[in-house]
Write a protein that binds this DNA or RNA. Structure first.
Lengths: 237, 237
DNA sequence: CGGCGTATTGACCACCCTCAACTGACGTGG
DNA sequence: CCACGTCAGTTGAGGGTGGTCAATACGCCG
């Protein structure tokens, strides 16, 4: 208490989109931005729904999912800390947005953000480059979904998580490096385009191959990063 | 002869990104833009290669493909007339770019385009909105790759082509509506994440179901658009 | 007509899906 | 303290979709 929440002490400030803002704009942002909290599993925005605000993800993991008329799900993207949440210039969200873990957001009104983008070329540039990266990431994932085997898919996911969720303790991470999965087996399956049983079996195979250990259902220890990358089918995907 | 190629008579001017440019900028563009031609199958930019120019696609179809170390291919995007070709703000192309049909491009130097985006907020806005649409399209395709059956994939592709390649002759297109496929069977397979033989068989099934006819290998006549959409698994993907 | 590349068709099989039973962790209540 | 229910994950058995390999048909061109 006492310390007002402020951009100055924001944990993701350096990596988030607002990093480009000038002090004057930042002061204003500081006054009008507000927080939202969600528990794991809660819906944030439904598909086809209009979202009246945009946000930067402060902590937790958010999943973007699409659902077919008959109920088949596909996770089409994950958001991590410092990522932007929202779809400007479109009336309704093209997918549903859901908290995969407990989530903390830093939000601004839709209209404010759109105005800010008009007045701040640097912000727009930031947003553009992020969006271009999103396209690249989505296309990378298309290779995984369309061309990789179940084992390669599982290995690729663990690899991605290991690279994202850096422990941050220096150049040479601990061996075996532990990865906390923000996804349940069901969510892993929805992300990789396979069934949950297949996930279980492939994790078993990776364990038998000696490249990972599974101390608990949500924890994976990578024993052989090189071998894992090889089983993932090469990173040129 | 006589008529100098000019933006004023450009067939895709209204839909292309340069539509936002003011007359002064357009005059300059008119002087320095130049054309490139490619035959079907030719490489335009190799993966990992630096592209010294960007372009608007005047005619033809361009495919963006990714290749795994062992040679597996996945088409991760198609470009049609008026689409933008290039990846600003990145040193090397994240995929290889190839002509699917004969292709005509209207090109400008990379440095010129990047400068133009700095000076023209409207152009940058255009580009941003296009890129956001690319993300949405890629994510739609992720649903197809991860969740649809082979039959749904085939139906979805034909449906997409039917909607893209409008004959332009009014509200009620001819019945049966003919679609000229810009892709070979191999390319269809690489786009849908299946084998070429599967494409053949699924087209056969759609023919037996009475929703399409195949007058020639590259021509598909849609007899029952509604039925095709149903077999495609619903458009909420 | 022969040759070549593309597409189709057939036979077989493997990978992954489906359905089902089982295990383990956790929480509640008797 | 243990019985019981619940939920997530694992494991097993069997089957279907789509992959693999091979032969055949078709279209185009010299």
């Amino acid at each position: 208490m006492g310390i007002r929440r402020s951009c100055a002490v924001c944990a993701v400030r350096a990596e988030a989109m607002c990093a480009t803002l000038q002090s004057e704009q930042l002061n204003r942002l500081n006054r009008i931005a507000y927080r939202r909290h969600y528990n794991a599993g809660q819906f944030i925005v439904g598909a086809g729904q209009r979202q009246e605000w945009f946000a930067t993800l402060l902590s937790g993991v958010v999943k973007l999912t699409k659902t077919m008329p008959d109920g088949r799900h596909q996770i089409v993207g994950l958001l991590f800390a410092s990522d932007f949440l929202g779809r400007p210039f479109l009336e309704s969200s093209p997918y549903s947005v859901e908290a995969a873990t407990a989530v903390e957001l830093c939000c601004v009104e839709r209209s404010y953000f759109e105005e800010l983008m008009l007045n701040s070329p640097a912000l727009k540039q930031q947003f553009l480059e992020r969006t271009l990266n999103d396209v690249d990431a989505a296309r990378d994932w298309m290779v995984l979904l369309g061309r990789k085997t179940a084992e390669e898919k599982a290995a690729s996911l663990i690899l991605m998580m290991a690279r994202r969720g850096r422990t941050g303790n220096g150049e040479h991470p601990a061996h075996p490096m532990e990865v906390e999965l923000p996804l349940s087996r069901t969510e892993m399956a929805e992300y990789l385009g396979v069934r949950i049983e297949t996930i279980s079996r492939q994790l078993g195979r990776l364990r038998e191959a000696g490249v990972i250990e599974t101390p608990s259902a949500r924890t994976i220890a990578v024993r052989d990063m090189r071998g894992l990358a090889r089983l993932a089918g090469g990173d040129a995907a």
